[in-house]
């Protein structure tokens, strides 16, 4: 890493050579960042302003109500979303990390089937989420007979984020220098010992960051859950793996399509809650990376 950092003086010298182009490029970079952040700021400000009257305890203490928007809440949706994310993490993270370990540390890349697997994982990451919904409905809910509970939803979301977890974990594992593996082998460690005690610990920051970003994607998904019959009115929290559930994106969509303005305010408030959950998850990702990052 240190080698890649150009001394500041060199940057200044270069910019003196061709000032206009340098300035234009820098301006383009700043504008790009401003556009990306600007939309986020606009979204947050708009939603907080609109949802402000309903951004209080009623939102997480009460269950949804179609008759009384003034007391309606999103508790079942918030709890449903937490269940989904928790279960998705439990299913997708171990599977994804182990798959990445296999592909990076064990697989023989000259074999055709390993190359096919690699190629397909890249492809899977680009499939529209509704397709995973159809897959979940057909295979998980019906053929496996798991029904329309929160477990089916989490398994489907796991399939959705698995490619992202695998790709992120592979990058992290690949970034661990070969010298560390060789050192471990030289001291007589087996491959399993090398992977579990050297490579994986060193790759944790990258794996954790990638995984949390993948879970953040899952949390905002509505399309596959609608296919799986996530209901828009569930006045009870899921208490087991096979209970019917709702989720925040679904609840938000249902409220937005209602005719009464009070529900639109409620939707804005629920969007703020969803954004807050996302923001917390992303902060954890940043914190993890900073806390455990190592440099060689």
């Amino acid at each position: 890493m240190a080698l890649l950092t150009t001394p500041r003086s060199a940057v200044r010298l270069a910019s003196e050579g061709r000032p206009l182009r340098e300035h234009l490029f820098k301006a383009a970079l700043v504008v790009s960042v401003a556009i990306a952040l600007g939309f986020l700021v606009v979204l947050i400000v708009y939603m907080v302003t609109k949802g402000w009257p309903r951004l209080d305890a009623r939102l997480w203490e009460n269950q949804p109500s179609i008759r009384r928007p003034e007391i309606a809440g999103a508790q079942s949706a918030i709890v449903g979303t937490l269940w989904l994310i928790g279960l998705t993490a439990l299913i997708a993270l171990p599977t994804g990390v182990l798959a990445a370990v296999y592909l990076e540390e064990y697989a023989d890349r000259t074999r055709w089937y390993n190359r096919v697997i690699e190629l397909n994982i890249q492809n899977l990451a680009a499939i529209p989420s509704i397709v995973y919904g159809i897959l979940g409905l057909g295979i998980i809910a019906r053929v496996l007979g798991l029904g329309f509970g929160v477990l089916t939803g989490a398994m489907t979301l796991s399939l959705l984020v698995l490619p992202i977890v695998i790709i992120a974990s592979r990058e992290a594992i690949r970034a661990v220098p070969t010298s560390i593996r060789e050192g471990s082998f030289a001291l007589g460690a087996t491959q399993w010992q090398t992977v579990s005690r050297q490579v994986l610990p060193a790759a944790v920051p990258g794996i954790a960051t990638g995984s949390i970003l993948a879970l953040s994607r899952a949390i905002g998904e509505a399309a596959p859950l609608i296919m799986l019959g996530a209901a828009t009115f569930v006045p009870f929290n899921p208490e087991g793996l096979f209970d019917r559930f709702s989720a925040l994106p679904i609840q938000i969509y249902f409220w937005i399509t209602q005719s009464r303005e009070e529900f639109h305010v409620l939707a804005a408030a629920a969007i703020v809650v969803l954004l807050a959950i996302l923001l917390v998850m992303n902060s954890v990702a940043v914190w993890l990376r900073n806390r455990y990052q190592r440099r060689w």
Binding site: R67, A231, P235
Partner: peptide, 29 residues
Amino acid sequence: SSTVGPLTTAAAELFAEGSPRVRISVGTS
């Protein structure tokens, strides 16, 4: 139907006032 869903939802809400232990869910696919 998402058009009729709110009607069954309202029925479920009113019904729940007397039978709170019946868990009724309404989807709108």
